[in-house]
Computed example of a mutant assay.
Amino acid sequence: MSSSDIFASEVLGTMVLVLLGGGVCAAVSLKRSKAFAAGWVAIAFGWGFAVLTGAYIAQSSGAHLNPAVTIALALKEGKGATPWSDVPVYLGSELLGAMLGAVLVWLVYYAQFQVTLREPDAVEMKDANPGPAHGVFFTSPEVRKPWLNLLTEVIATFVLIIAILTQGLVKDVDGTVGLGKLGALITALVVVGIGLSLGGPTGYAINPVRDLGPRIVHAVLPLPNKGGSDWSYAWVPVVGPLLGSAIAAGVYNLAWG
């Protein structure tokens, strides 16, 4: 596959992933939204459906949509490994797609942002870091203990990546290896499970660009009273998923490589 094909597929897939995932966060978090205060279950399932939709859109490139997946597949031994020469294209397109998706969330919920961020409580938080709209764009911990937060992201991402890698071990009666198109559905359900079971402490980034791309967009968008983008925490949802990915790939290579 050419670099341009990878780029187009991953940009579009990751853009839709973040549009739908960030969109459900906006729907639940922003006032004057019909889904306002719908709760964590709605967010977990919304992100699962976001992964499902983005993965089907990006089938032609393998639907990485996540640097943690790209790195794991590059580290993976044997058939199906991603060439290291393709890794920069994947990473760049995933970050760009995530940023575009975040901009689209802002456009779709523009009126809700204006209403919510001009409320008295938001005005009082205008200098807060993270600010009152951060949950739409990026993650932050409920209890700020960076090394424990990092461990949470490592474990959650390990679950995601090992679930993806082991799909290739499944063999059908006709000799077909892997889950094929069903793999996207299984991965989406895994993401829902991670959100429900492991997402409480940190908001489960489990994807560096899902957090970093929208965080950059939050920092530059002209949102009223938006507060800070919490850059002191930004390394956790980047480093944690990458570490979890590398550990999962190592375990896979030791057990099945």
Rank of each mutant, 00 (worst) to 15 (best):
L169V: 01
E142V: 10
W84C: 04
S2R: 15
S4N: 11
G257H: 14
W147E: 02
T53G: 01
V239P: 03
G80I: 08
K79I: 09
L91V: 11
T116W: 10
I216R: 00
S4W: 14
Q59I: 10
H218W: 10
H218E: 09
Y204E: 11
Q59K: 14
L17D: 02
P88G: 04
V170K: 02
A102E: 00
W235S: 11
D5K: 15
L242Y: 05
W256D: 05
M125Y: 04
V177K: 14
A111C: 02
K126A: 15
E94H: 06
A58P: 05
V89E: 05
I164W: 05
L95N: 07
L221C: 04
Y204Q: 08
R118H: 13
P132H: 05
E77P: 00
V209G: 03
I71W: 09
I164T: 06
I57Y: 01
P214Q: 08
A68Q: 05
T187C: 05
L243M: 14
D211L: 13
S33R: 02
A63F: 11
A58V: 03
V170F: 13
Y204V: 04
L185A: 13
L91I: 13
E142G: 12
F113D: 06
L17H: 00
D211G: 13
S61M: 05
L107A: 15
L148V: 07
I57W: 04
Q112H: 09
S85K: 13
I57F: 01
A44C: 15
D211Y: 11
V217Y: 07
A122C: 12
G250I: 08
L151Q: 01
V89M: 02
N207V: 08
S245I: 12
G199D: 11
F158C: 03
L254C: 08
G240Y: 08
F7A: 14
T157L: 07
K226E: 02
L73Y: 04
V69I: 10
G203H: 00
V136I: 14
G203E: 04
D127I: 00
G227P: 01
A128E: 11
G62D: 04
L242A: 09
I161S: 12
R144M: 09
L160P: 00
A42S: 15
T70N: 13
P132K: 12
K79D: 14
E77M: 06
E119R: 14
W231A: 03
K126E: 14
Q59M: 14
G22Q: 02
G131N: 07
L95P: 00
I216D: 09
K181P: 00
A58R: 03
R210L: 10
G48E: 03
K145F: 05
V177S: 11
V28K: 02
I43P: 04
F158K: 03
K126N: 07
I186V: 15
V236R: 06
M1E: 09
V177R: 14
P88A: 04
A205E: 08
P201C: 03
W235I: 11
A248S: 13
G21N: 02
I162P: 04
L52F: 15
T166S: 11
Y109R: 04
I161C: 10
V18C: 02
T53K: 08
P132A: 12
K79Q: 14
R215G: 03
T202H: 03
A234G: 13
A72I: 08
V238S: 07
I155C: 10
E94M: 05
W231D: 03
S197T: 15
S33V: 11
